[in-house]
Simulated assay, not measured.
Amino acid sequence: MAKATPATAALEKARIAFTLHEYDYDPNAQRIGMQAAEALGISPERLLKTLMAKAGNATVCVLVPSDKEVSLKRLAAAAGVKDAAMLPPAEAERFTGYHVGGISPLGQRKRAASFIERAALAHQTILVNGGRRGLQIEIAPDDLVRAIDAKAADLC
């Protein structure tokens, strides 16, 4: 069994069921989420990448399928602000306490408003980063939404 992370600890504390999946992380992959989906043999629309962004003056967590790109215009609209921009990697790491390639929406150092692509809610289970490179958490979408108090929106 994989070593516990702040993400898995948060789910255990909340008594939310999840399954861990480990894979060989490729630090040279062009698209980390796509590499993870391929390594695990699952469809990329079920594996959500965790992105950190600024929406207005607030840092937000954004979950979108690994085969899609977030629309910053749609993110800003969902957050009720004029503009949004991606956080630089070093700032995302400082905010979350995780390394890029291992940023989980769960157990972050600071709490951020979270947004999830609405289409992801249609799946029975989805996968999100488990808090370290090479670890994914499989969870029911409703449980994830509840755990991070995410707002569903059309983000892609």
Rank of each mutant, 00 (worst) to 15 (best):
L20E: 05
G97K: 03
K3P: 07
M34W: 11
S66F: 09
A140C: 08
L20S: 02
N28R: 12
K110D: 12
C156K: 06
V70I: 09
A122S: 15
K3M: 14
R118S: 12
A76Y: 05
G80R: 05
R109K: 14
K49N: 12
A147E: 04
K110P: 00
Y23P: 00
R31Y: 15
R133M: 12
A78T: 04
I148D: 00
R94C: 11
T59K: 14
A153L: 10
G97P: 02
A39V: 12
T19M: 12
S104F: 06
L135F: 00
L11S: 03
G102D: 02
Q35Y: 04
D149P: 01
Q108Y: 06
G102M: 03
D143M: 08
P88Y: 14
C61W: 02
G107N: 01
R132Q: 06
I103R: 02
K54V: 12
A7L: 01
T96S: 13
A39P: 09
R31P: 05
A58D: 15
V70M: 13
I16C: 08
R15Q: 14
M1W: 05
G130L: 01
A140D: 06
A55P: 03
A53T: 10
E93L: 09
E117W: 04
G97Q: 05
L155T: 02
G130V: 00
A58T: 06
D143G: 07
V62N: 02
D154S: 13
S43A: 15
G102S: 07
I32R: 03
P89I: 10
G80P: 02
K13S: 15
R94D: 13
A79P: 02
R146W: 09
K54I: 13
V70F: 08
G101F: 07
D149R: 02
K3L: 13
L47V: 07
M34G: 03
A4V: 02
F95T: 02
T96I: 05
H99E: 15
A85P: 05
P65Q: 11
T96D: 02
A36W: 00
E93I: 08
A10I: 00
E45C: 14
A120I: 08
K3G: 12
R74H: 14
P88G: 15
F95A: 11
R111S: 11
G80Q: 06
M1E: 11
E91R: 09
K54D: 13
A78Q: 04
P89D: 11
L87P: 03
G41H: 10
G101V: 08
D24A: 14
T5K: 01
I139F: 03
A84E: 05
A53S: 11
R94K: 13
A17N: 08
G56M: 09
A7P: 01
S66C: 13
A2G: 04
